[in-house]
Every structure is written in structure tokens, then in C-alpha cells.
Amino acid sequence: MTEIWQGLTRALELIFTLDPEVMEIAGRSLTISVTSTILASLICLPLGSLIHFRNFPGKRFLVSIIQTFFSVPTVAIGLFVFVLFSRAGLLGGLDLMFTPAIMVIGQVMLITPVMLGLTISALSGVDKAILDTALSLGASDFQASVVALREARYAVLAAVIMGFGRAISEIGIALMVGGNIKGFTRVITTAISLETSRGDLELAIALGIILISIALVINIILNRVQQR
């Protein structure tokens, strides 16, 4: 018990003195996850509009598949990316293994289904008459879908925040294809895992507090947004 108490006080010290190592790891976590979220948004918002507004055979089946992948295990994505990008893999030639770039790729794969699915359901909540009105006033199909996304902006923002939350808290991909290389691919989750196994609880707890704080901030924003 005293060990945990000591760890906690030391952890707060690390945070409030802006310990360089803690800050560096937290900063990298944020950078990688924000990048993944932006890239996934660039994919999901247009693709989600396309899926929602176009009618094609197998649309419902596709949406079911997307929803199935909401809770895909991070290690499954990690394994898939590992196989794909390892030396002998299909994309092995790109030589991206154990870099922040491949972590971003993995996270984008991880959060795309959630963000896509939630974008589609956000758009389903938009009155069809809004779209008709936009078209009748001379909007192109693209302009009309921008209108729909803007009408559903709070629900769409919630989708984006969900994606970010899932990206920053995952460990499977970061560990398996990131490699937890100090100063290069070490992020909050992998660092906590490593420091805990090494018995350095202070650093682990400090990073844990930061991770929980980020989660808290995300939840507060999400709640605010959904109450609008």
C-alpha cells in the first residue's frame, strides 16, 4: 500500500514538474492518435456520406459488417498489420515496421469502422427534407452532403471523439508493430505496460493519470456535445 502511495505522490511530482520523459511520451501518444483521428476522419466523413446517400445492393450487409468491426480486438489489427508489413509481407518493401507511421496506419484501421458506422448513423438522423431542400436550392450532391454533415455536426463530432478515444487508449498495435522503442515509438500505454513489469510504478502511475485525464476530458467534451 505504501508503495502505491509513494508512487502516486512521486507521479504527481513528475507531472507537475513537467518531467521531460513523461511529457515526451504523452506528447508522442497525442501526436500519433491525433494524426490517426484526422486521417480516419478524412476517410470516414466522405465515405460515410457516400454509403448513406447512395443506394446499392448489399448496403445493409455492408453496414452490418462495419458495425461488427466496432469492437475488433486491437491485437487482431496488430497481427494483421504485422503480417502485412513484415519483411516477407505484401507491403514489407515499404520498410515501415516499428515506426510511428505504421502505428498511425494500424490505428486508422482500428478506428475507421467505429467512426464510419457512427457517421452513417449520424447522417441517418438528418431529416430527408433537409437534403431535398439543399438540392432544390441548387446544391450539387457534394454540397448537399456537406449540408447533411453540418446538420449532424454534433453527432459527427461525437463519432470523431469516439475514434480518438479508442486510438489513444489502445496497446495491441502500439506494442506489436510500434515496438515500444524508447524515444521513438514508446507511447503512454506501452510505457505503462513496460514500467509496471519492471517495477517502476512511479512512471507507470504518472502516465496512467495522464491517460485517465485525457479520457476524462474526452468524456466531458462528448457529454457536452451530445447534450446540444
Binding site: 431535398d132 432544390s136 449540408v147
Partner: peptide
């Protein structure tokens, strides 16, 4: 679209953008 842009249509249910 170009032809539609020469017209305007006021729908029965007045919906406004948010």
C-alpha cells in the same frame, strides 16, 4: 444541376438549416 440552378423549389414542409 445547371438546369436545376435556374429554378427554385419551396417544399411543403418548411425546413430550415440549423
Amino acid at each position: 444541376l445547371e438546369m436545376r440552378r435556374r429554378m427554385a423549389f419551396v417544399l411543403q414542409k418548411p425546413v430550415v438549416f440549423n
